[in-house]
């Protein structure tokens, strides 16, 4: 089985039924997708599979063989922040940070699909992502700011 993770090709040893989340975290050491509820309910494990947000905890490796996977490590780093990361950082849209990688990759996919989303579209795109710290207020503000900045 093969995956392209953040631009790097990997030949994998994990079995076809191993959740993508564990392949990333355990076999490849990519730890930004978080093992939250591990039943598809919290959004903390979200990664982009061929550009689309997917719950990596519910995605067996065999279903995404050969796909391109993007995690937040492939979006930007501390020295070269993606505009969405920049907005989350500047506007304090992350507190403990557990939901943040999933929130940010989902936002990146949203803005690619819909560069100027309305409030409703932002809520729809992030409705499956639970955040216990921020009350979502600053997350919505950050997504709006990132969209505004990309105009």
């Amino acid at each position: 089985m093969k995956l392209n993770v953040n631009g790097v090709e990997h030949a994998l040893e994990s079995g076809a039924l191993t959740p993508l989340l564990h392949v990333l975290r355990e076999e490849l050491g990519v730890t930004s997708p978080k093992a939250g509820c591990q039943s598809g309910g919290c959004g903390a494990c979200t990664v982009l599979v061929d550009g689309e947000p997917r719950r990596s905890c519910l995605t067996p490796l065999g279903a995404v063989d050969g796909a391109e996977v993007t995690t937040i490590e492939g979006i930007g780093d501390a020295h070269d922040l993606h505009p969405v990361q920049e907005a989350f950082h500047t506007l304090h849209a992350a507190q403990c940070g557990f939901c943040t990688p999933g929130m940010i990759v989902a936002t990146v996919a949203l803005l690619k699909r819909l560069p100027q989303p309305g409030r409703r579209e932002i809520e729809r795109a992030l409705s499956g992502h639970i955040c216990r710290c921020t009350g979502y207020v600053k997350i919505v503000e950050a997504v709006e700011a990132a969209a505004g900045g990309s105009r």
């Binding site: 509820c37 039943s39 309910g41 919290c42 992030l126 639970i130 009350g135 979502y136 207020v137 997350i139």
Partner: peptide, 17 residues
């Protein structure tokens, strides 16, 4: 017995704060 059965608010339908 699991995360999803303890409901917390989601980003949808938030009040104006």
């Amino acid at each position: 017995s699991e995360f999803g059965s303890y409901l917390s608010a989601s980003i949808e339908g938030l009040p104006e704060v």
